[in-house]
Amino acid sequence: MQASTPKNTVQQSYHHGNLRQALLEKAQEQLTEVGPDKLSLRALARDVGVSQTAPYRHFADKTDLLAALSATGFRRLRDALMAEVEGLESAVDKLHISGKTYILFAQNNAELYRLMFGPMIPPDFDHRELQEAGNEAVTAIVGIIESGIQQGQFRADDPFVLANSAWGMVHGLASLLIDNRFSCTERPFLEEDVDKALRVVSAGLSC
Protein backbone atom coordinates (compact mmCIF):
# COMPACT_ATOMS: atom_id res chain seq x y z
CA MET A 1 0.00 0.00 0.00
CA GLN A 2 1.45 3.36 -1.05
CA ALA A 3 1.89 6.06 1.51
CA SER A 4 -0.34 9.06 0.88
CA THR A 5 1.39 12.11 -0.56
CA PRO A 6 1.30 15.14 1.76
CA LYS A 7 -0.73 18.01 0.47
CA ASN A 8 1.12 20.99 -0.91
CA THR A 9 1.87 23.31 2.00
CA VAL A 10 0.92 26.44 0.07
CA GLN A 11 -2.35 24.92 -1.09
CA GLN A 12 -3.14 24.02 2.51
CA SER A 13 -2.41 27.61 3.49
CA TYR A 14 -4.72 28.78 0.72
CA HIS A 15 -7.59 26.77 2.15
CA HIS A 16 -6.89 28.36 5.52
CA GLY A 17 -7.14 31.84 4.03
CA ASN A 18 -3.44 32.70 3.66
CA LEU A 19 -3.24 32.75 -0.12
CA ARG A 20 -3.64 36.51 -0.38
CA GLN A 21 -0.61 37.14 1.82
CA ALA A 22 1.40 34.47 0.00
CA LEU A 23 0.60 36.12 -3.33
CA LEU A 24 1.59 39.55 -2.05
CA GLU A 25 4.89 38.26 -0.71
CA LYS A 26 5.68 36.54 -3.99
CA ALA A 27 4.56 39.65 -5.90
CA GLN A 28 7.06 41.71 -3.90
CA GLU A 29 9.81 39.31 -4.97
CA GLN A 30 8.77 39.47 -8.61
CA LEU A 31 8.47 43.24 -8.47
CA THR A 32 12.07 43.51 -7.30
CA GLU A 33 13.29 41.02 -9.90
CA VAL A 34 11.38 42.00 -13.06
CA GLY A 35 9.49 45.22 -12.30
CA PRO A 36 5.72 45.84 -12.42
CA ASP A 37 5.32 45.49 -16.20
CA LYS A 38 6.26 41.80 -16.24
CA LEU A 39 4.51 40.89 -13.01
CA SER A 40 1.49 38.66 -13.69
CA LEU A 41 -1.18 36.84 -11.72
CA ARG A 42 -0.57 33.66 -13.72
CA ALA A 43 3.12 33.64 -12.89
CA LEU A 44 2.30 34.28 -9.24
CA ALA A 45 -0.15 31.38 -9.19
CA ARG A 46 2.47 29.08 -10.71
CA ASP A 47 5.18 30.16 -8.29
CA VAL A 48 2.94 29.91 -5.24
CA GLY A 49 1.63 26.52 -6.35
CA VAL A 50 -2.09 27.11 -6.89
CA SER A 51 -4.38 27.05 -9.90
CA GLN A 52 -4.29 30.01 -12.29
CA THR A 53 -7.80 31.01 -11.26
CA ALA A 54 -7.12 30.99 -7.51
CA PRO A 55 -5.54 34.50 -7.33
CA TYR A 56 -8.72 36.00 -8.77
CA ARG A 57 -10.51 35.11 -5.55
CA HIS A 58 -8.46 37.90 -3.96
CA PHE A 59 -7.55 40.27 -6.79
CA ALA A 60 -9.88 41.34 -9.58
CA ASP A 61 -7.00 41.95 -11.98
CA LYS A 62 -3.36 42.99 -12.14
CA THR A 63 -4.10 46.60 -11.23
CA ASP A 64 -5.94 45.43 -8.14
CA LEU A 65 -2.91 43.34 -7.18
CA LEU A 66 -0.52 46.26 -7.73
CA ALA A 67 -2.75 48.52 -5.63
CA ALA A 68 -2.72 46.01 -2.78
CA LEU A 69 1.05 45.70 -3.09
CA SER A 70 1.36 49.49 -2.96
CA ALA A 71 -0.79 49.52 0.16
CA THR A 72 1.66 47.18 1.88
CA GLY A 73 4.42 49.59 0.87
CA PHE A 74 2.66 52.57 2.44
CA ARG A 75 2.06 50.62 5.64
CA ARG A 76 5.72 49.61 5.79
CA LEU A 77 6.74 53.22 5.20
CA ARG A 78 4.40 54.47 7.92
CA ASP A 79 5.66 51.86 10.38
CA ALA A 80 9.28 52.76 9.62
CA LEU A 81 8.62 56.48 10.09
CA MET A 82 6.83 55.98 13.40
CA ALA A 83 9.44 53.56 14.73
CA GLU A 84 12.36 55.89 13.98
CA VAL A 85 10.84 58.98 15.62
CA GLU A 86 9.53 57.16 18.69
CA GLY A 87 10.91 58.71 21.85
CA LEU A 88 12.00 61.97 20.21
CA GLU A 89 10.51 65.17 21.61
CA SER A 90 11.64 67.85 19.18
CA ALA A 91 9.45 68.09 16.08
CA VAL A 92 12.45 69.36 14.11
CA ASP A 93 14.37 66.22 15.03
CA LYS A 94 11.36 64.07 14.15
CA LEU A 95 11.00 65.70 10.75
CA HIS A 96 14.72 65.32 10.06
CA ILE A 97 14.79 61.64 11.03
CA SER A 98 11.57 60.87 9.19
CA GLY A 99 13.04 62.49 6.07
CA LYS A 100 16.14 60.29 6.27
CA THR A 101 13.94 57.25 6.90
CA TYR A 102 11.80 58.10 3.87
CA ILE A 103 14.85 58.39 1.61
CA LEU A 104 16.35 55.17 2.97
CA PHE A 105 13.05 53.37 2.36
CA ALA A 106 13.08 54.57 -1.25
CA GLN A 107 16.68 53.47 -1.75
CA ASN A 108 16.11 50.03 -0.22
CA ASN A 109 12.79 49.44 -2.00
CA ALA A 110 13.23 51.27 -5.29
CA GLU A 111 10.79 49.24 -7.40
CA LEU A 112 8.11 49.26 -4.71
CA TYR A 113 8.62 53.00 -4.19
CA ARG A 114 8.22 53.67 -7.92
CA LEU A 115 5.07 51.55 -7.95
CA MET A 116 3.60 53.42 -4.97
CA PHE A 117 3.96 56.78 -6.68
CA GLY A 118 4.17 55.86 -10.36
CA PRO A 119 1.68 55.69 -13.24
CA MET A 120 0.95 51.94 -13.06
CA ILE A 121 -1.96 52.67 -10.71
CA PRO A 122 -4.26 55.45 -11.99
CA PRO A 123 -4.79 58.27 -9.45
CA ASP A 124 -8.55 57.78 -9.68
CA PHE A 125 -8.38 54.01 -9.18
CA ASP A 126 -10.90 53.13 -6.47
CA HIS A 127 -9.04 50.96 -3.98
CA ARG A 128 -10.01 51.48 -0.36
CA GLU A 129 -7.04 49.63 1.16
CA LEU A 130 -4.55 51.72 -0.82
CA GLN A 131 -6.34 54.96 0.00
CA GLU A 132 -6.37 54.17 3.72
CA ALA A 133 -2.72 53.09 3.79
CA GLY A 134 -1.63 56.20 1.90
CA ASN A 135 -3.61 58.46 4.21
CA GLU A 136 -2.09 56.80 7.27
CA ALA A 137 1.43 57.44 5.96
CA VAL A 138 0.65 61.10 5.29
CA THR A 139 -1.05 61.43 8.68
CA ALA A 140 2.22 60.40 10.35
CA ILE A 141 3.92 63.43 8.75
CA VAL A 142 1.01 65.73 9.54
CA GLY A 143 1.27 64.68 13.19
CA ILE A 144 4.91 65.75 13.29
CA ILE A 145 4.04 69.11 11.76
CA GLU A 146 1.19 69.65 14.23
CA SER A 147 3.48 68.95 17.17
CA GLY A 148 6.02 71.38 15.71
CA ILE A 149 3.40 74.10 15.49
CA GLN A 150 2.38 73.45 19.10
CA GLN A 151 6.03 73.59 20.19
CA GLY A 152 6.54 76.87 18.34
CA GLN A 153 9.15 75.30 16.05
CA PHE A 154 7.10 75.53 12.86
CA ARG A 155 5.04 78.43 11.60
CA ALA A 156 1.36 78.52 12.57
CA ASP A 157 -0.10 77.50 9.25
CA ASP A 158 -2.28 74.74 7.83
CA PRO A 159 -0.43 71.57 8.92
CA PHE A 160 -1.52 69.73 5.79
CA VAL A 161 -0.01 72.43 3.57
CA LEU A 162 3.25 72.32 5.52
CA ALA A 163 3.29 68.51 5.54
CA ASN A 164 2.67 68.30 1.80
CA SER A 165 5.40 70.88 1.17
CA ALA A 166 7.93 68.93 3.24
CA TRP A 167 6.81 65.66 1.69
CA GLY A 168 7.16 67.07 -1.82
CA MET A 169 10.74 68.18 -1.21
CA VAL A 170 11.82 64.92 0.44
CA HIS A 171 10.00 62.83 -2.16
CA GLY A 172 11.70 64.70 -4.98
CA LEU A 173 15.09 64.21 -3.38
CA ALA A 174 14.45 60.48 -2.88
CA SER A 175 13.30 60.06 -6.49
CA LEU A 176 16.35 61.84 -7.87
CA LEU A 177 18.64 59.69 -5.74
CA ILE A 178 17.18 56.29 -6.66
CA ASP A 179 17.14 57.22 -10.36
CA ASN A 180 20.72 58.49 -10.13
CA ARG A 181 19.76 61.86 -11.61
CA PHE A 182 22.43 63.74 -9.70
CA SER A 183 25.07 62.01 -11.82
CA CYS A 184 24.58 64.61 -14.56
CA THR A 185 25.54 67.52 -12.29
CA GLU A 186 29.04 68.96 -11.98
CA ARG A 187 29.19 68.04 -8.30
CA PRO A 188 27.87 64.63 -7.22
CA PHE A 189 25.32 64.52 -4.43
CA LEU A 190 27.12 63.17 -1.38
CA GLU A 191 25.72 61.22 1.54
CA GLU A 192 26.23 64.14 3.91
CA ASP A 193 24.26 66.35 1.53
CA VAL A 194 21.09 64.52 2.59
CA ASP A 195 21.39 65.98 6.08
CA LYS A 196 21.98 69.45 4.67
CA ALA A 197 18.99 69.17 2.35
CA LEU A 198 16.73 68.02 5.18
CA ARG A 199 17.84 70.97 7.30
CA VAL A 200 16.73 73.20 4.43
CA VAL A 201 13.32 71.51 4.58
CA SER A 202 13.02 72.18 8.32
CA ALA A 203 14.21 75.76 7.91
CA GLY A 204 11.52 76.37 5.31
CA LEU A 205 8.84 75.45 7.86
CA SER A 206 10.31 77.41 10.76
CA CYS A 207 8.72 80.47 12.28
Rank of each mutant, 00 (worst) to 15 (best):
F59R: 15
S147E: 15
A110R: 15
Y102I: 03
D64Q: 11
L104W: 02
G152S: 08
P123D: 14
P119R: 15
D93C: 05
Q150R: 15
S70Y: 02
A68P: 00
D124H: 10
V50I: 14
S98H: 04
G143P: 00
K100Q: 11
S147R: 14
G168P: 06
P159A: 09
F125Y: 15
P159H: 01
I141V: 05
Y56N: 15
I97Y: 03
D93M: 05
L104P: 00
L130T: 02
I144W: 00
Q153M: 09
N135C: 06
K100T: 02
K62F: 06
V92T: 04
M116P: 00
N164Y: 09
S147M: 10
L173D: 07
F59W: 10
A60S: 12
R155H: 08
S51Q: 13
R114S: 05
L162T: 03
P159I: 04
L115I: 02
R128Q: 15
L104M: 08
K100Y: 00
S70C: 05
A133M: 05
M116T: 03
I97N: 02
L177W: 10
R76E: 13
E129S: 08
R46T: 14
E136S: 10
A83E: 11
L176M: 12
E84Q: 13
G73T: 09
E132T: 12
R57Y: 13
V92I: 05
L104S: 15
Q150D: 11
G87F: 04
H58E: 07
I149E: 07
D93H: 12
V138A: 01
Q150W: 00
R76I: 01
A110F: 01
D126Y: 06
D157A: 07
I97A: 10
F125N: 07
L177K: 13
E89Q: 11
Q52Y: 09
P122V: 11
L162N: 03
S175W: 06
D157Q: 13
I178S: 07
I178P: 02
Q150M: 07
H58Y: 12
L77K: 06
L95W: 03
E146A: 11
E129K: 04
L81A: 05
G172F: 10
R76K: 13
A133W: 00
T72I: 04
L173W: 04
R46L: 11
A83I: 01
G49I: 12
F154L: 09
E146L: 06
D79L: 07
E146M: 09
G73C: 07
N108H: 05
L112E: 13
G99Q: 09
H96Y: 10
G168H: 12
L130H: 00
R57Q: 14
A67Q: 08
G99S: 13
G49W: 09
G148N: 11
H96P: 00
A166W: 03
L173I: 12
Y56S: 14
A137E: 04
R114W: 01
R114K: 13
D158C: 07
L95V: 01
L81N: 04
M169W: 08
A83D: 13
I97H: 06
W167V: 09
N164I: 10
M120K: 15
V142L: 10
P123A: 12
Y113Q: 12
A163C: 09
A83L: 09
K62M: 08
A106V: 06
A174T: 07
F117M: 10
